[in-house]
């Protein structure tokens, strides 16, 4: 437990709580919502043998791409790594263990852990090659796959706005996995562009209540790195 009035933390102190071998959820879909400042500090501090849980692998030179390149990541639980050729190469060479899930199932497995459940039943993926890898049960005359929840030791999330108690407001498509991951780890460290005094956020507009947040770090507004991710479509 972190006392309400002791959550505002220096970035070095917050990241120093993460040990080697930790499992870490990282918010973001591509660049938006990725806690770049927290990840860069993690790179600087040198923690190793990490398990990362993120929708994608960012790109080779930013975010978790830099940790993968530096050989700090042992295992990656993800949905799609097509924009990171280094991650694909590390996977193919057997240097990075990659566990892939359909995107919506990955989100739901994390949501489920955050809601305090063991897992859920689904018909997604029946009749495809992922079917044989999961336990199935019969319920009400239908076949269902059991999808266990995914939890982590630490979650690193990015918010637009926070207050000093750790209430969070996300913005635009930077919401993505952040509110789910904020609830699914034993400790959650949030970075925010703006940190305000308690009472300044509209209670109804808060996405993640402070009960789920252990530490809040204020970071500089949108770095150029966050703008680098433009892809031709």
């Amino acid at each position: 437990m972190t006392l309400l009035n002791q959550k505002l933390t220096a970035i070095e102190t917050a990241i120093a709580t993460i040990p080697d071998g930790a499992s870490i959820m990282v918010g973001g879909f591509g660049s938006p919502g990725t806690p770049f400042a927290l990840l860069d500090e993690l790179l600087a501090q040198g923690q190793r043998r990490l398990t990362l849980i993120k929708n994608d692998a960012n790109e080779p030179d930013i975010g978790i791409g830099r940790l993968i390149r530096a050989g700090r990541v042992e295992r990656l639980i993800t949905s799609h790594i097509g924009l990171n050729r280094i991650a694909i190469e590390e996977m193919n060479q057997g240097r990075l263990a990659v566990e892939m899930h359909p995107q919506g199932l990955l989100a739901e497995k994390i949501r489920c852990a955050g809601a305090g459940h063991y897992g859920f039943l689904t018909d997604i993926g029946l009749g495809t090659e992922i079917a044989g890898k999961r336990r199935e049960i019969e319920c009400d005359g239908q076949t269902w796959a059991i999808e266990p929840a995914i939890r982590a030791d630490v979650a690193l999330v990015h918010a637009d706005l926070a207050d000093a108690y750790g209430n969070l407001v996300y913005r635009g498509t930077a919401i993505n996995f952040n509110p789910l991951m904020a609830m699914a780890a034993d400790r959650t460290i949030a970075q925010a562009f703006k940190v305000q005094a308690p009472g300044s956020l509209v209670p109804e507009a808060i996405h993640t209540p402070c009960a789920f947040i252990n530490q809040v770090v204020q970071v500089a507004t949108a770095s150029s790195e966050q703008g680098r991710s433009v892809h031709a479509v």
Binding site: T78, P102, Q103, G104, L105, D123, I124, G125, I130
Partner: peptide
């Protein structure tokens, strides 16, 4: 084999 992303659920549902 970059991963299936959101395609499986879109296709099925």
């Amino acid at each position: 084999s970059p991963g299936i992303g959101g395609a499986m659920e879109l296709a099925q549902k």
